[in-house]
């Protein structure tokens, strides 16, 4: 038996080698004919903004309803985020009206900071619209639960989604304590008011969320929301003590959402 087995393995090995040599030859041929195989043809973009850990500071003092709307519009337009609230859309029904998709949105203080919603809170804070977005946690629970690794953490701290891989299982939505993720219950395309040709849309059955505008960082631009915030939002490298965000945090008291959960958010709020 032992003999049979060994001989079998040996022969099978030889034959697999033999047959695969065909394919190797073909691949080599292809390589020769094609790209210069010696160097990696892929490279990082030169103009890109880089950081060790991207972070954001939201200065709530500088935000009012108008700014909020401007910011949200800028983000959602840039990323082709669908608006399912239009009753004229195909598939709309009152029951699914709350199937909204949002990357950045406004919330009331007690929703954003339930732990800090004190009994005698300043009136200003009670009414203040607070911009909420993905916290780009340093310890993201959504990454851990993703079965296909569609959600992953980049080296610069951005929690990214690979929409190609998302199978719509929504484990990440259950795992995220901030409700930062949205699911496309319907085909998003008809719900996009003005399509940005530079950025892809999603398809039905895919989860999406804020990506810190990594596509803009790659071409040397600040995130869309920051650009239109008139200084209410500040973006930069949390690991760099000289960065604008760090300076701001140095001089102001800032809080983060549900810190006790240990997710270590990268978005700070100055209240």
């Amino acid at each position: 038996m032992e003999n049979t087995r060994r001989k079998f393995l040996k022969l099978t090995g030889v034959s697999v080698l033999g047959l695969s040599s065909l394919s190797v030859m073909d691949v080599l041929d292809a390589k020769k004919a094609g790209a210069a195989a010696d160097a990696d043809p892929y490279a990082y973009p030169e103009k890109a903004l880089t950081a060790q850990r991207w972070g954001m500071v939201v200065d709530t003092r500088k935000i009012d309803a108008r700014t909020t709307k401007r910011i949200i519009d800028a983000c959602h337009t840039a990323h082709n985020v669908p608006d399912f609230s239009d009753p004229n859309l195909p598939g709309f029904s009152p029951a699914n009206a709350r199937h909204t998709v949002k990357w950045i949105w406004d919330e009331t203080y007690d929703h954003v900071f339930p732990e800090k919603a004190d009994e005698f809170l300043a009136d200003r804070l009670k009414k203040l619209p607070i911009l909420t977005l993905c916290n780009q946690c340093a310890n993201p629970p959504c990454v851990r639960v993703c079965p296909t690794r569609a959600t992953f953490k980049r080296e610069d701290g951005i929690v990214m989604m690979d929409f190609h891989r998302c199978i719509g299982c929504r484990f990440c939505m259950a795992a995220c304590p901030y409700g930062s993720r949205s699911f496309n219950f319907r085909d998003p395309r008809p719900a996009i008011k003005k399509e940005n040709k530079q950025y892809p849309t999603r398809m039905k059955g895919v989860v999406e969320k804020c990506n810190f505008c990594e596509e803009r960082l790659a071409v040397g631009k600040q995130p869309a929301c920051v650009e239109v915030s008139n200084g209410a939002l500040v973006f930069g490298d949390l690991a760099d003590p000289n960065s604008e965000v760090r300076k701001l945090l140095n001089t102001n008291y800032a809080i983060r959402r549900k810190q006790s959960l240990g997710t270590n958010p990268s978005v700070y709020y100055i209240v």
């Binding site: 790209a35 160097a39 973009p45 992953f152 690979d162 530079q198």
Partner: peptide, 23 residues
């Protein structure tokens, strides 16, 4: 692009291309 953030491709003609299907 998505996973490694490498967005430039050097083609055979030595030209650099933005790694993007649509663009």
């Amino acid at each position: 692009v998505v996973r490694e953030d490498k967005r430039t491709y050097s083609g055979k003609d030595g030209k650099e291309y933005d790694v993007s299907l649509s663009n």
